[in-house]
């Protein structure tokens, strides 16, 4: 194993990790406002990839228009999920809502299968051209898009939550829902906004990764699992945790291929997650320790 190969493992770990991180960010966004793990998050990513593939590959839309339309359309799906299902449960526990998101994810997946069928969809990378070579290791151009956009999105979300009034209000809902109500914040509206934002974010992730990973109707669950693992590994409820968790997960997976038989990749990553959660339940960065009153009002 020479240096170039080790570098290659690190790069492929970071690329995959950036994908997990993007999905994880969406998880965190909804968790921040609602305490709910939205298991339909992976379906938002899948829908983003499929819609963009169809708009670009079959309808031949210009890429920017296809991407913006996709993000808007999936954002609307997010609003519908909240409007049609989540907000209907007035006094449901968090677990009820989590189960609803699972049900919604199955529905979205089935609809996607009936619509586009089981074959993988795909469109060309944003930037054409051969991959970069750094000290003998290969970096796909699309991977740079994934990592770069991930960094921009994370910085943007950081600013949103710390600087904008809307972001602060969403954060307030997360920290203390009752106190947020007493501040005159319409908590339900914040939940709706968080669903739209995280669906749009999921769609963006789907658009970015499809040139690398293809888009198939059934990819949502695996992505959701990895995104969830990324968030949990970093620690739920902290901005930045999904990024740290995602990159760590990607690197662990890549490293596991070096030291173990390769089929173990997925199990190793989840095993590490379990170990981290057993040793430090709040995640690597430490999430919000205090559990809050979580009945929907």
């Amino acid at each position: 194993m020479d240096a170039a190969q080790l570098l290659q493992f690190a790069i492929s770990g970071l690329t995959v990790g950036a994908i997990y991180a993007l999905v994880g960010l969406g998880f965190n966004l909804i968790f921040n406002a609602t305490d709910v793990i939205n298991f339909a998050q992976g379906e938002f990513v899948m829908l983003g990839g499929i819609l963009a593939s169809i708009a670009i590959g079959q309808w031949h839309w210009p890429m920017w228009l296809a991407i913006l339309t996709t993000i808007a359309a999936v954002g609307l799906v997010g609003a519908l999920v909240d409007f049609g299902a989540v907000s209907r449960v007035r006094r449901g526990s968090v677990m009820t809502i989590v189960m609803i998101t699972l049900g919604v994810s199955v529905m979205i997946k089935t609809a996607a299968l009936l619509w586009v069928g089981p074959n993988p969809l795909y469109f060309d990378p944003f930037t054409a051209g051969p991959p970069l070579r750094i000290f003998g290791a290969v970096v796909q151009l699309q991977a740079l898009w994934v990592i770069g956009t991930g960094a921009v999105v994370m910085a943007g979300l950081g600013l949103f939550f710390s600087r904008s009034a809307l972001g602060r209000e969403m954060l307030a809902c997360a920290i203390d829902r009752e106190a947020a109500y007493l501040m005159g914040i319409d908590v339900r509206r914040m939940v709706r906004i968080s669903f739209v934002l995280s669906a749009a974010l999921g769609a963006l992730a789907g658009v970015l990764i499809t040139p690398l990973t293809n888009a198939t109707y059934d990819q949502g669950f695996t992505l959701a699992l990895k995104g969830f693992a990324a968030s949990a590994l970093g620690g739920f409820g902290r901005s930045g945790s999904a990024i740290v968790g995602g990159l760590a997960l990607g690197l662990i997976e890549a490293a596991s291929v070096v030291v173990m038989p390769s089929g173990w990749k997925d199990s190793v990553a989840l095993l590490v997650l379990i170990l981290v959660l057993v040793v430090k339940p709040s995640g690597l960065l430490g999430g919000r320790a205090e559990r809050r009153h979580t009945q929907a009002l």
């Binding site: 995959v16 293809n214 990819q219 890549a254």
Partner: peptide, 9 residues
């Protein structure tokens, strides 16, 4: 969705 690590090895 990614096989670069396996291919590298």
């Amino acid at each position: 969705t990614d096989t670069t690590a396996e291919w590298t090895k």
